[in-house]
Design a protein around this nucleic acid. Structure first.
Lengths: 232, 232
DNA sequence: CAACAAATGTGCGTATATCGCACAAATCCA
DNA sequence: TGGATTTGTGCGATATACGCACATTTGTTG
């Protein structure tokens, strides 16, 4: 049935500016088709991208040749190669050297996990997680995971909500509430820091207070990280 | 299809096979140019990719238009968009839901950090880290960071070294030794698990023993993770 | 500050890479 | 087994991408 088409507009009709490469656009569309379905056949790729099967085939085989995708029979999937641009991006933002240690330090103080997300168009993209061994792994979020902007605390903060912080109770994931603060100016945040707390906690309000304070301290620390400003 | 074609699909060294898209290949080249230099001008991109400046411009602007790159004046850099294919890849391999908790658990038992890497062509690519707060962040490695195959323990294991494990003392990073084991068959590993220990430890040999045991237990656990086999 | 050098932005004619049809093979179902 | 669906591929027409050449901006040096 109708699955959301992926390269929404590889604009056929609209005047493609003379300076843009339609072929590259389509190729990126093929790459994007794997967001939401880990393994695809050529026909499925053609469907999702709206490309002719023949075109989808040529572009997909090109991705395989370049090492960005894998082919196993008729099944295509992404290759580890796609991690490298991500690594380059993270390197540029000092995420490994500066951001991660900061998150870890504050997560320990907070007694919970902290996540950092950037906005990408219409979604929030996870960039880093503090790592507390034994922490509940709710949704299995990883670097590059996306979340909706509207129904998550971290998403609302990224939209530039006027509030200095956002608390959403059970909207995205049942049984927990999300708490998030902006990094940088609240109306035009560079990024957002978030954490979650079980709704069942007896002293929830108190915990929210302390978590909020911890997040805001972390946000203050992150503002000075070189590269983060340009990454966001 | 059954008709044997005369020019066997020999890899075209000089001539581009008719089924490959040269434009997409060039566009991916532009993306790759940012691995190793976070911010580039159009001329630098043209230099690094070997493309005509005009072509580099068109392709780069296309990446910007598609949201994969950012432009600030004459400076171009990657956008958070590049994290999303990485996220899709990690999702497919169950890295968030299954691999990460496994690493965390064993890292706690080990008392050190554990990293998981996959091979991508001529390099090792970091895919996941256990997260121990307070752990020394030596090189600021992130998801997507690359390491050479030859001079690292994890790289040698990925090359299918005959040894069940590899220990490299101070080759890649001074003052520490790297220890790695394969996930899956040693001669054709799916992935590699690694850790590092300071060379200065008084009881280094003992620590290596216990670390090795921990890594091998972790490797055993990972072998059954669904999706990992196809990801590697 | 002027004059030069280097880097950058852009238009355009041409070659050709890309498109997508149409047909052939293979695969799947009942 | 037969037909229906999915998949693989050759080929001509045409839109696409190329890269030169020129115009413009930036920066360097005497």
């Amino acid at each position: 049935m109708s699955v959301t088409r992926f390269p929404p507009p590889v604009n056929e009709s609209a005047q493609m500016s003379k300076t843009l490469s339609t072929t590259l656009l389509k190729g990126l569309g093929v790459l994007s088709a794997f967001e939401g379905a880990p393994v695809l056949t050529l026909s499925q790729i053609a469907d999702r991208t709206g490309l002719d099967r023949s075109t989808a085939r040529r572009l997909t085989l090109t991705l395989v040749e370049a090492g960005w995708a894998r082919q196993q029979g008729r099944a295509f999937s992404l290759a580890p190669r796609v991690l490298r641009p991500a690594g380059a991006f993270l390197q540029a933002g000092s995420f490994g050297r500066a951001v991660q240690p900061t998150l870890n330090a504050h997560a320990e103080a907070l007694g919970g996990e902290i996540s950092l997300a950037l906005r990408d168009d219409t979604v929030a993209v996870y960039v880093a997680h503090s790592a507390r061994p034994g922490a509940r792994v709710s949704l299995g979020l990883t670097v590059g995971s996306t979340l909706p902007l509207d129904t998550t605390a971290i998403g609302q903060v990224l939209q530039g909500s006027d509030q200095p912080a956002q608390v959403i109770r059970g909207a995205y994931e049942a049984g927990v509430c999300g708490l998030a603060v902006p990094v940088g100016a609240p109306h035009a945040p560079l990024a957002a820091l978030g954490t979650t707390l079980p709704l069942a906690l007896p002293d929830l309000d108190t915990r929210l207070e302390t978590a909020l304070a911890a997040l805001q301290m972390a946000a203050a620390d992150l503002r000075d990280v070189p590269g983060l400003a340009s990454a966001a």
